[in-house]
């Protein structure tokens, strides 16, 4: 190709060694500077490692019953004490991290996938599609979410898996609405008009252009929602609608401990602390992500 245009014009020069930064890399840079967010990330990573290496960390199994050491206070042998069956609470809390993180992560992933799909359809196609999907969201949001979760588990039957499904379902409208509003604003951007002008199909515009530009608030909301999901799972466990008997789900441990609350408070304190710390970690991390990814979302 002849490059006749080159000579008459001064091509504006950018130094070649200048660092190339993607929008994600810039977000990471500002995230790194946020100390609280790093603390939160540290807590989250700590619990993830705990969950992964639980068999190596926990000194005993989750259901090793020793009637001789029932309800013992924390000691060198049993760091967090023992419960009414003589099981080591430290071991149970460590294994409990697996359950809570598993429920939190997968429930939120489920709601993100379904919520995003519905939200994108509603936002992009508008009209009756939007009305239908938005009204369904409204109906779901009209219920107090934990009541809805209880109702769903009651219908499906109490088990950990069904608790996860219930938590996923009740969170769908949150993500759906969020992505719908993002799509509504992103689709009016000129680069979407430009994508159409180039000759792209709807599916390509949706998944290559609108979705990546709508992801930031979803990631933030997703992190915060994991925290909520963990609490919801614990609440369902506490009500006896979550994990089955020997499984050391933190909420279930709280429920089992409540009759010994006075004589053996450690049976309650440690699972409670575990819930609190994990949720705090996810919340701090989520806040940090929000500041880094979308400064305008503050307040």
């Amino acid at each position: 190709m002849e490059i006749s245009t080159q000579k008459q014009m001064q091509p504006p020069v950018i130094k070649a060694e200048e660092k190339v930064t993607s929008p994600w890399a810039e977000a990471w840079y500002s995230f790194k500077k946020n100390k609280l967010a790093l603390v939160g990330t540290g807590i989250v990573i700590f619990f993830i490692l705990l969950a992964i290496f639980a068999p190596l960390i926990a000194p005993e199994g989750i259901n090793d019953q020793k009637m001789s050491v029932r309800l013992q206070a924390p000691s060198a042998d049993h760091w967090f004490g023992t419960d009414d069956f003589g099981r080591d609470i430290f071991s149970r809390v460590v294994y409990g991290a697996r359950i809570s993180l598993w429920v939190g992560t997968f429930a939120v992933m489920g709601s993100i996938i379904v919520g995003c799909l519905l939200g994108i359809l509603a936002g992009y196609y508008g009209k009756w599609v939007d009305s239908l999907i938005s009204r369904i969201f409204d109906i779901m949001l009209a219920f107090p979410s934990i009541l809805l979760a209880i109702a769903i588990v009651a219908v499906l039957g109490p088990s950990l898996r069904n608790a996860l499904i219930a938590i996923a379902i009740i969170n769908i409208p949150n993500f759906g609405r969020l992505i719908r509003s993002r799509v509504l604003s992103v689709k009016e951007e000129e680069y979407i008009m430009a994508a159409k002008a180039v000759g792209m199909k709807d599916s390509r515009i949706l998944f290559q252009h609108i979705l990546p530009n709508s992801m930031a608030p979803i990631i933030v909301q997703g992190t915060l929602a994991i925290a909520t999901a963990i609490i919801e799972a614990a609440a369902l466990g506490f009500l006896g609608l979550g994990a089955d008997a020997p499984n050391p789900e933190w909420g279930k441990m709280l429920a089992d401990a409540k009759q010994f609350m006075i004589q053996a408070p450690w049976t309650m304190i440690f699972p409670g602390l575990a819930i609190m710390l994990t949720v705090l970690g996810f919340n701090l991390m989520g806040d940090g992500l929000r500041d880094a990814l979308d400064p305008r979302m503050k307040n």
Partner: peptide, 10 residues
């Protein structure tokens, strides 16, 4: 018209 809006930032 707007070179700041017509290119996908990502």
């Amino acid at each position: 018209q707007d070179p700041f809006a017509s290119l996908n930032p990502r």
